[in-house]
């Protein structure tokens, strides 16, 4: 802790110093407790399979000798790689739909002088708080002929109303004079959106990429309803098969050493790491934009 900080703390009484010390200690404990489950999965995934089979309790270090056998099995498994690729396709195409449609909608929602602003805003808001329910949603996708297609994982979630409202707030915060000036220059609405507004809202777009991106990456439920062909599974559906339903026969077939039972837990740990690392690596870079994003989106104010 730097000198300036200590001075700030020292100028208060001893009780405050005691509290401050306790506060730091407590927060450190919170961090450790929060991080431990993730850390546990990480070290377990690199541990020696035989040692992991014995009771491991509260592990602080991986069981030596370190082993990457579980990773080899996971990464050699055809379904894991295919589903990884599927998820990336869904993510990229999904984001294109998400960002373009949400920007269009958000732009319209800033035009509160238009006659149709209110009815359309009401139509959109109402859908946020009332829905037909699970079965009608399923039957709808079925009747649209989207079953067992990647589109069934992209189109029904093309817009998150919440995210669109976050965007609207960012758009509305742009000074009117800029938009007015462009309008006087004869710019169309589309031009105003693409050349005036979007270039000024890069930070918000970063948050949107993260929000929408994470939701695509983590989605499993719709796929469990709509996708029947295993080669079309997104990553999370394969994870669910292996981690939740315990269907790892295909993995066991690829462990030729006859230690399938021994490896099955390690396979789970390494699969968790393989599927989660990309997101955990990405998000700290976008962290500074969060507060803004959460704040403007939460409330009308």
């Amino acid at each position: 802790m730097g000198k300036a900080y200590s001075n700030k703390i020292m100028q208060h009484g001893p009780w405050y110093q005691l509290f401050y010390g306790f506060n730091i200690l407590f927060l450190t404990a919170v961090i450790l407790v929060t991080a431990y489950p993730i850390y546990f999965v990480l070290i377990a995934s690199f541990s020696d399979p035989a040692a992991m089979n014995a009771n491991y309790g509260l592990m602080m270090l991986p069981k030596f000798p370190l082993s990457i056998r579980a990773y080899k099995i996971v990464l050699n498994h055809p379904l894991v790689l295919v589903s990884y690729k599927n998820t990336i396709v869904i993510l990229v195409v999904g984001l294109l739909f998400n960002l373009s449609l949400s920007s269009l909608g958000a732009y319209f929602l800033t035009l509160n002088k238009s006659m149709w602003h209110k009815p359309i805003a009401m139509l959109i808001l109402f859908s946020m708080y009332f829905s037909g329910g699970l079965v009608p949603m399923y039957l709808n996708v079925r009747s649209l002929g989207l079953m067992d297609t990647t589109w069934s994982l992209i189109l029904p979630v093309a817009i998150s109303t919440y995210n669109m409202l976050v965007m609207r707030s960012a758009f509305a915060a742009i000074p009117d004079s800029l938009v007015e000036a462009a309008r006087l220059d004869g710019a169309s609405h589309f031009r105003i959106l693409t050349t005036v507004i979007l270039p000024l809202t890069g930070a918000m777009m970063a948050v949107m990429v993260l929000y929408y991106g994470v939701s695509h990456w983590n989605a499993w439920f719709n796929a469990s309803l709509f996708i029947q062909t295993p080669t079309k599974y997104p990553l999370q559906l394969v994870l669910r098969q292996v981690l939740i339903l315990g269907q790892n026969a295909e993995f066991e077939a690829s462990t030729d050493m006859g230690d399938a039972a021994q490896m099955s837990e390690l396979i789970k740990y390494s699969l968790i790491i393989v599927s989660t690392v990309p997101i955990l690596m990405l998000y700290p870079f976008l962290q500074r934009f969060f507060v803004k994003g959460v704040m403007v989106g939460a409330l009308k104010g």
Partner: peptide
């Protein structure tokens, strides 16, 4: 004044009609 904006909001409306309001009717 807003014709361009109405064209732009059409795909958004289509989304809400197909994926929110049609299932409500389906209920």
């Amino acid at each position: 004044q807003y014709a361009g904006a109405y064209v732009m909001v059409l795909p958004v409306l289509a989304f809400f009609i197909i994926f929110s309001y049609k299932p409500m009717l389906g209920a």
